[in-house]
Design a protein around this nucleic acid. Structure first.
Length: 123
RNA sequence: GAUGCAAGCCGAUUUGUCGCCGUCCCGUCUUUGGGCGGGAAGGAGGAAAGUCCGGGCAACAAAGAGCGCCAUACUUCCUAACGGGAAGGGCCCCACUCCUAUGAUGUGGGGUACAGAUAGUGCCACAGAAAACAAACCGCCGCGAAACGAUGUCUCGGGGUAAGGGUGAAAAGGUGGGGUAAGAGCCCACCGCUCCUACAGUGAUGCAGGAGGCAGGGUAAACCUUAUGGGUUGAAAGAUCAAAUAGGCUCCGGUCCAAGGGCUGCUCGUCCAAUCCCGAUCCGUCGGGAACCCGGAGUGGGUAGAUCGAUAGACCCUGCUUGCGAAGGCAGGGCUAGAUAAAUGACAAAUGGCUUUUGCCCUCGGGCAAAGGUUACAGAACCCGGCUUAUAGGCUUGCAUUUUUU
RNA sequence: GAUUCCGUAGCUCAGCUGGUAGAGCAAUACACUUUUAAUGUAUGGGUCCUGGGUUCGAGCCCCAGCGGGAUCA
């Protein structure tokens, strides 16, 4: 099993991010807002994590949340390929809570989100 | 030993599994840009924070001077520079000592935005007679007039007076004596204040002597004056390379005998339609060139993106040395993050520190064991020097208080 | 990374170049009404974000901090 999360699996292109936010489908699963979009030209699934400065003031706490989100995605990203292994997507995970949550709280939510995205038919 | 204050320093460790970032090495693939796999060593701070100052660096601007704006403000020094720091001076507060009823000198500690109020303007509520070119409410003291209970009392008028009362944060040098009708720096002594001179000190200033009868309340963290400094912007600065697409420019070729447009589902066909310049002309046109259009090549700017800026520096450690000190000099050694939708981690366990409860021991303050809790503040974003603020817990040094022992 | 503004009653805001902190809404009580609402009268309610400083005196001036908002590609 591949548990890595290298740079080409992270979404960092300004253009792709703009496209994702303009055209992507979205849903809420507290404490996350999720955007995703099918990307035909991409070789892998690409993901971005966002924690707002408005929601969480301290840089230390923002890092705390982002690292746990990354870990949860890294350990469960295979769930995206369970239904249609060839379909690749761009995904944005946005943390919208004001409070910190532990890894034990975050991981089950991420698992739920990834299975839901995998089952969704994107037109 | 305990407690408190001040200064300085440290600010968790280990193991396992899975990862992230750049550097180097090896292998492999390759479109020579790089991709993939493996390995090695490295990877947040004392404040990385706040962005309160200063500098480097960069772009732009710039004859010089003045006005304006902003900042700073005892002195000397340190420094690349500073609003930072060191040493010193003045002032204020506290303690001790001395003397005494109020202070003095000395010692120690703490604080201090500490230039100018005699350059000018403004403000000083309420209370109070009066709040700034002083002022007469009560009071005190003469003078004049009237009355009467007649050498006094009271009333009125017109004066003198800042000693006393009362108000206030503040009432126009203080204390004592002389003086006076009563008083008053009116005069005198001491203290204070201002000015001048000598001496000591680089200087702030100190100290001594002399002169002046005292003019001059506070507020500049009110406007302001004086002196000094500041060009503006800020890495989102700036530099280099530059895909695709669409423009610009240049060149070549084609069309111009026709480009283009309409009719038609399409071809053929047919109809409409030909800008400018030069030359020739029988004035009908003809020839050449340009433009338009089509195709190709090159090239400039520049977007996405990439690289640099950007991590070896006013650097760190040790020793010697100069200086009271901040700091400087010399010698030796060291290399210590470099990301960019933004790495330095996640999970689990153990250990250590601190602490709570229970049990046992004992020199009554600790030790041991078990269980539990807690392990802070905080995340580089161009770099550096400071300042300020946050911080579980621990260590060192100095001072003060207290207890015990000697 | 840079710039800038705000913090006053439960809420929304005033407070002039410093002198005893106010308005509207809300709250409480009373009146009116069969009752409620509306209306009227009265009342209470303030660490002027925090700490320090200047001043006789600070919501206002100065310094430091805390919290919140906005702008700049």
């Amino acid at each position: 099993m591949n548990y890595k999360l290298s740079k080409n699996e992270r979404l960092h292109s300004k253009k792709s991010i703009k496209e994702l936010f303009d055209k992507g489908s979205s849903f809420f699963l507290y404490p996350f807002k999720v955007l995703f979009l099918e990307a035909g030209d991409s070789e892998t699934n690409q993901v971005l994590f966002s924690v707002s400065k408005r929601k969480i003031k301290r840089a230390v706490n923002r890092n705390y949340v982002k690292r746990r989100m990354k870990e949860a995605y890294r350990l469960n990203k295979h769930l995206l390929d369970t239904v249609e292994p060839d379909k690749k997507r761009h995904v944005a995970l946005i943390y919208v809570s004001h409070e910190l949550q532990s890894f034990q709280d975050i991981q089950p939510k991420i698992v739920k989100i990834l299975t839901r995205i995998a089952k969704t038919e994107t037109p």
